[in-house]
């Protein structure tokens, strides 16, 4: 339904996007994950028709962004990282204005505004001026204006940025709720957010998509790091020659005191993990604990973005 093929974007001589391709099916909630400066906002702006790509093309429902940019924009609702709101308007006026501006027929506006205010939890502040609202409510109004004209695709740039924990939970619910009627594409550099909210993840690094899939499929492609604590000395550990074991890499050792050492390594498989523990035991080190060193998606993300050249 939404397709980007070979999209590149240059700012002067600097390449912000390099041959980015992906497709998103109807009803999916997809997250762009990347560090600051990875190109997330640029790719979203290209999708929404705010920027023309230097190469490649984007389409929504088969409508090409270059051939029919206005038709494309009718099908997309966009919330930038800073909601575009006029402080002198009430919430109701703002949502109605955005709906009309994006082409919703006048006779349908009142009903749609009521629906959207309900959906976004704004009914109780509908007649408040936007300048009176908290940051969390302003984000909600931003989502309300993005969905007011019933777009197929809703694009949200860092929607939880600056929200407190309670507002984040509420925002997650709101974004998941959009899934019923819209396809949602959001960006974030916050791993847990992407993990909680999205069905699928596109990992962007230095303008390239370096991986895509569900959290589980991404994790499956990356060997997990393991942390072992054992009774023994650094000398015992050196004698064990762990670094020579097949499937064990990125070995780090630390003396934590009281005759206990800690070992961190990345293991390629369960067999390699078993081999590592067995070797330690055979060399007389008393293994006390074996655990995953880092959380799932964080580990995957760090691995995927490490050493990738633009």
């Amino acid at each position: 339904m939404i397709e980007a093929v070979g999209v590149s974007k240059f700012y002067g001589a600097r390449r912000a996007l390099a041959d980015v391709s992906f497709s998103i099916a109807q009803g999916e909630v997809v997250g762009f994950l990347g560090l600051n400066g990875a190109g997330k906002t640029t790719v979203l702006k290209v999708l929404c028709g705010l920027l023309v790509p230097s190469a490649g093309k984007v389409s929504v429902d088969g409508i090409d962004g270059i051939d029919a940019p206005r038709e494309l924009r009718k099908r997309i609702g966009f919330l930038p990282d800073r909601p575009p709101l006029f402080p002198e308007m009430t919430v109701r006026q703002m949502v109605a204005y955005a709906a009309r501006l994006c082409g919703l027929p006048a006779e349908r506006v009142d009903r749609r505004v009521a629906e959207v205010l309900e959906l976004c939890g704004l009914a109780n502040v509908a007649d408040d001026l936007i300048e009176w609202l908290s940051h969390g409510y302003r984000q909600r109004v931003g989502i309300a204006i993005a969905v007011a004209h019933e777009p197929k695709l809703v694009v949200l740039d860092e929607p939880i940025s600056g929200l407190d924990p309670a507002q984040i939970v509420a925002m997650r619910g709101l974004i998941r709720g959009l899934k019923e009627k819209h396809t949602v594409l959001l960006s974030s550099h916050i791993l847990s957010e992407i993990s909680h909210t999205c069905d699928r993840i596109l990992v962007l690094h230095q303008g390239r998509i370096v991986a895509q899939g569900t959290e589980a499929t991404l994790a499956a492609g990356v060997s997990p790091p393991v942390e072992v604590t054992a009774r023994g000395t650094m000398a015992d550990l050196a004698k064990a020659e762990i670094h020579k074991l097949e499937g064990v890499s990125e070995l780090e050792t630390t003396d934590v005191g009281n005759g206990v050492v800690r070992l961190c390594a990345r293991v390629a498989s369960d067999t390699a993990r078993e081999q590592l523990v067995a070797t330690l035991v055979q060399r007389g080190l008393g293994v006390r604990s074996v655990s995953d060193a880092e959380g799932g998606l964080e580990s995957v993300f760090l691995k995927l973005t490490k050493g990738v050249e633009a």
Binding site: C48, R73, F78, L85, L101, C102, I145
Partner: peptide, 14 residues
């Protein structure tokens, strides 16, 4: 300055 121009730019308005 306010970041509201994006509302017009992202709309189908010519």
């Amino acid at each position: 300055q306010m970041g509201t121009l994006v509302l017009l730019e992202a709309s189908p308005a010519r």
